[in-house]
Amino acid sequence: MNKKIIFLRIMLLVLLGQPIMPSLAQAVPNMADHRLLLFFSNNVLGELEPCG
């Protein structure tokens, strides 16, 4: 068989194995996932730890 035809057939097989369109999950960002932990402090006033 012609080398060119073999090469084209292999390439065709490789291409067919790839998904053509991205999945729906990839196309639409996950809008609900904005959960965030916020730690906060204020007026620490130079305290490292209490006196022992």
Partner: peptide, 29 residues
């Protein structure tokens, strides 16, 4: 109170909950 206890809580909770965290201080530190 104390920074070592605060650090333990921040590290433990962040690791347990596996959520992104933001750490802020509003001043007079």
């Amino acid at each position: 109170g104390g920074l070592p206890k605060k650090a333990y809580q921040i590290k433990t909770i962040t690791a347990d909950q596996k959520k992104p965290a933001l750490i802020l201080d509003s001043g007079n530190l």
